[in-house]
């Protein structure tokens, strides 16, 4: 897994649920969590892009995290939230089904991704760790939001 300092030291992880699965992001990368407002669709965008929204005067791209992770689409409910993450000097929103707790996390607790996890998900994770009884997948934001042209083209082609 890619080394990333702020995600492997002792830190806090904000957890959330997508398609009944538990995931987490280190709090250092999460700016805030907001309710879903009006999301304007951007046609022809990669299909994991839900659209754009207005975050206090700033245009934020909203990513459908479930789609990116290859999960089943869940209807947007009153519990749905958008995690505003910081990525390459930009704010990006991640749609989740429900917000979980913020849990402490020690890097030594990080386990490799189980072998039987689908590649679409496994490729997006730093690893997994236990918090109480829950097994939480620690997301690698940089891989999720990777916009390398080759990849995007593929995704675009798939989307059209």
């Amino acid at each position: 897994m890619e080394e990333n300092n702020d995600e492997v030291t002792q830190s806090l992880v904000a957890t959330f649920i997508v398609d009944d699965r538990h995931y987490g992001l280190t709090t250092s990368r999460v700016r805030e969590v907001v309710r879903i407002g009006e999301i304007t669709p951007v046609h022809h965008s990669p299909d994991f892009i839900l659209g754009i929204m207005n975050l206090r005067g700033r245009i934020v791209t909203v990513v459908d995290l479930g789609r990116k992770l290859g999960l089943n689409r869940q209807a947007v409910t009153g519990h749905s939230r958008i995690f505003i993450a910081e990525w390459q000097q930009e704010h990006v929103g991640l749609l989740v089904d429900r917000v979980g707790e913020v849990v402490p996390f020690d890097e030594t607790e990080l386990r490799p991704v189980p072998e039987n996890m689908p590649a679409a998900q496994a490729g997006m994770l730093h690893g997994v760790f236990h918090s109480g009884k829950l097994l939480i997948g620690l997301l690698n934001l940089d891989l999720i939001l990777d916009d390398a042209p080759g990849k995007e083209d593929r995704q675009k082609a798939g989307g059209e």
Partner: peptide, 23 residues
């Protein structure tokens, strides 16, 4: 400006926030 994921789309020059706060 649009975010990095959307910059490559030639049909849009950007986005704007309308009077009602929608994009």
């Amino acid at each position: 400006p649009l975010g990095r994921h959307l910059k490559g789309l030639p049909e849009y020059a950007g986005a704007t926030i309308m009077g009602d706060g929608k994009v």
